[in-house]
Design a protein around this nucleic acid. Structure first.
Length: 162
DNA sequence: AGATTGAGCGGCA
DNA sequence: TGCCGCTCAATCT
């Protein structure tokens, strides 16, 4: 399903009441490149609430750890991918880790880590945008501009806490 | 079952 | 700086 909030569209797939996949908030001309479904006019509160949290994550208005406590989600991925994403969950709001760091920790290669992140079904909720390359931003399925946007907002938010 | 493909990295000139 | 070789899970063919 796709839910619209203001001029952002958030794609979500639920199995029962559990979120198994989502997109980051996108404008109308972008969303259908990533998910096919129809925009729900009057979404049930349960679904709307999840979409609102994803929107807040995008604008760095909520901590992802808090979001994971609230959202009823299920991570359906292969074993290796799960190991990578479990490491990513521990990356603090406002900081970053490199592909190489994760690879070293799991005794694998940075390329393999990138592959796993590329298929993160729960972007923002599992903060794969905080994984960068050693000497650059690395990549991001939804476009590097989006990754840059979220990271910059998280960085500023963290600074303003002092 | 084998080949190809990356959201990477380190070394060497 | 720029290129080359290594890497390895996932995705083709």
């Amino acid at each position: 399903m796709i839910i619209q909030i203001d001029d952002y569209f958030i794609g979500m797939i639920f199995k029962g009441n559990q979120l198994v996949r989502n997109t980051i908030p996108l404008k109308s001309d972008e969303i259908f490149k990533f998910i096919n479904g129809k925009v729900i006019d009057n979404p049930e509160d349960e679904y709307l609430k999840v979409a609102e949290i994803i929107l807040k994550l995008y604008f760095a208005e909520i901590d992802d750890k808090k979001a994971r406590e609230i959202i009823n989600y299920k991570l359906e991925v292969p074993a290796f991918t799960k190991k990578v994403l479990d490491v990513v969950k521990d990356v603090e709001f406002g900081s970053v880790i490199t592909y190489g760091d994760i690879a070293k920790k799991l005794n694998t290669s940075p390329r393999a880590v990138g592959m796993a992140l590329k298929r993160n079904p729960l972007p923002l909720i599992i903060p794969c945008h905080r994984v960068v390359a050693k000497n650059s931003l690395g990549g991001y399925s939804y476009g590097l501009d989006k990754k840059k946007f979220v990271l910059e907002r998280e960085r500023l938010k963290k600074l303003s806490r002092y």
